[in-house]
Design a protein around this nucleic acid. Structure first.
Lengths: 235, 235
DNA sequence: TTTATTTATTAGACTAATCTAACTTTATTA
DNA sequence: TAATAAAGTTAGATTAGTCTAATAAATAAA
């Protein structure tokens, strides 16, 4: 049985690797992501290594073991199922669910999550558009790019957000954006990459940082990269 | 903000006083109820006293302050609302809900409990028949006695259980009992108080210990004690 | 009322998770 | 390649919550 804290370390390790596409994580990166000092993270890594949840050598990079990854994936699964419950059944807004799910994800009961999953009719995505891992810890990963990568003059569909913070999500709503909205990229400044987008006929200017935190799919890219039939893969 | 552990101490203090009707609690009693050693409970009592959550003098009895009671009542409220959710929406059996609610009761979010309460349509009782405190920490207390106190030859209605343990609840189900069932007390042994009861025409023999853990109301006693119109009071 | 028993408290130690400050290794760059 | 910067580690301290063993106070019994 893992502690609350151990679960958070494993979850964070997995999130970093999923978000960056990079399997290697460093102590400082992990520490800052968890909002602790590197010394603290270092101590915990030794403990997780003893428990065979991470592979780790002094001054080396950190990777999850199969067992560590399974545990981490389960925490993410619980987090996303709880977020879906809060959003769909209790009518929380999508910017409120993350914080509460950070607590609920640590409740220990496999049966609870199974029943909740059934109650929600086996959702595939959480309110932010992130896929929910299945019971075996497998994650469907949609072929996607960020809004910042979309060519001017083309359009795309928003499928998820990268940043789950309240302030970002509230800003997204203010711009008139939501999951499954069609976005046209009208123009982009060369100087600072400020981008003009159009949603439902309404134009807005968004920053580079903003655009990098919106995940989209666009037909052109899928065709180019021949991803039509294999839109999804299991990570 | 209280820790998980502090909340458990306060909740347990309140539960002991509510169950015994006695406002005074001792260190050993508290410790054994929490499954810790008296020395541990003693340390925590000093801390709770510093935080003005309990009134306590060396070698004296322990009572909750107004603030301590408010917090304790809130934990009980959350516990019972979560139990109701698990039972009514997720179809857990009544002997499974307690253990999971022990974890869920510590989730920190007032808004979550308010929304859950609304989602359940403001329930008044949990699956074990215990009343759910309101937002102000007020508890409706039903006039009740235990099955052990019911006179032979009379009948009563089960309204709640005292012991919430899985083993007891499973035994209750086995006997054919449930909330709101009518129970006729057929006979009682003088020697060991073994009692024969009848539920829906089926007779069973139950022990003194069993009978002491079933809460009932019976019309005779209410009339005698003149409790007809004041069936409920706020504790 | 003195003794025995129960109840409560203190002192000292342990574990988990964190910190600061000093030090070591690895990576970068001039 | 040698100096500098960045990343990672260690040692020692702290807090919360727990324990055991010894001691003290209150209560019950002889």
């Amino acid at each position: 049985m893992l502690t609350f804290t151990e679960e958070n370390y494993l979850k964070t390790l997995l999130k970093i690797t999923l978000d960056s596409g990079n399997a290697e994580v460093g102590t400082n990166e992990l520490a800052s992501s968890l909002d602790v000092k590197p010394a603290t993270a270092n101590d915990m890594l030794k403990k997780l290594k003893d428990k065979k949840l991470v592979d780790y050598e002094k001054y080396g990079k950190i990777t999850l073991t199969k067992e560590g990854r399974k545990n981490a994936m389960n925490v993410i699964r619980k987090h996303r199922i709880w977020e879906t419950f809060l959003f769909e059944k209790l009518e929380f807004s999508w910017d409120e669910v993350h914080e509460i799910a950070e607590q609920l994800e640590h409740i220990q009961s496999q049966k609870l999550i199974d029943k909740l999953d059934k109650f929600l009719d086996y959702p595939e995505f959480d309110p932010h558009g992130d896929p929910i891992p299945n019971k075996n810890g497998e994650l469907k990963v949609q072929f996607k790019k960020t809004l910042a990568e979309v060519n001017v003059g083309t359009s795309c569909k928003m499928i998820a957000v990268k940043d789950n913070s309240t302030s970002f999500l509230q800003y997204v709503v203010k711009v008139g954006l939501g999951i499954n909205n069609k976005i046209a990229v009208v123009s982009k400044q060369d100087y600072d990459a400020i981008t003009v987008i159009e949603i439902n006929g309404k134009q807005s200017s968004v920053s580079q940082k903003f655009a990098e935190n919106i995940f989209v799919v666009c037909n052109e890219c899928d065709i180019e990269k021949n991803c039509r039939e294999e839109h999804w893969k299991v990570k």
